[in-house]
Amino acid sequence: MQKKKEKQEQKLKPRRPTLRSELKKNGILFCMLLPAVLYVLIFNYLPMPGMIVAFKNFNYGKGLFGSDWAGLKNFGYLFKTGAIWRVTKNTVVYNLLFIICDMVVQIAVAVFLSETLGRKFKKVSQTMLLLPYFISWVVAGAIVYNLLSTDYGLINHILTANGKEAVNFMNTPRYWPGLFVLFHVWKQLGYGSVVYLSAITGIDSEIYEAALADGANIFQRVFRITIPLLKPTVIVLLLLNVGNIIKGDFAMFYNLTGNSAMLMDVSDVIDTFVYRSMIQTQNFGMSAAAGMLQSFLGFGIVMTVNTIIRKVEPDYALF
């Protein structure tokens, strides 16, 4: 899209304007863009040379550039201990689970909201569904505690009242993959269903009328019309998510488990690992190495996916 426009502009103008003439003509525009440019320069581009810390034995006193070189030791450590495999696997698998489960529930809710419900009911239920979106993960962590704590939690309260034994959720890894998915769906449900609902309301109502005239029942209308026509929205959202597949939701994993050591095997994602190695064990080199792998892997994934899409369905390409 953008490239096409640019090409047209070049055709219209005989010569590409020089920087100086452009500065003179549009000086005020440059000034207005300056805060954003400077911000990104300082907080996004300036740290990039700092990535060399992954190859160093970082020492606060000696500073970033004065610290001794460590070669590939930091990376070697990550691979030898197997930490990098564990956290990368957790990150990717959880993100895939989140994408799929979120999508199924969100689309179902959007379809139900669009097809059946009265105005008032729609509004009230949508407000209720959006509540978790506005609550911070810190509060969600408090909710987990209320529900699952061994001594006071509601779930264990119900279990013991029914003569069953209490479950120590905070120390039992096998419950957590399900719990993470549950809470992720819970938090994103309102947002996602709003997005899909707006896509559904954008569908031409004549299609439904025609189907109705042909005697299609409501299930056929949903599965043959609504869901296939959501394809573009689904693809756009999928692509946006694929770019982030290597980024773990730090706030969620950190708060829901309270950074519990017992649950590390199932709750440690790249972002929590990087944070913990940096702040708690002060191992700047190793956490930078993990972060660097994450950055390059993420970049590689986005580039690959985008290249493939440009060949298959150019309309959906991100850039």
Binding site: V40, G50, S287
Partner: peptide, 25 residues
């Protein structure tokens, strides 16, 4: 005239970042 170049300048930071540690330091 520099619209698309600046757009790319911003966009690039959304697909590649230095990561937490260099930024924190």
């Amino acid at each position: 005239a520099y619209r698309s170049r600046f757009s790319f300048y911003f966009f690039f930071t959304t697909i590649f970042s230095a990561g937490l540690v260099p930024w924190y330091i």
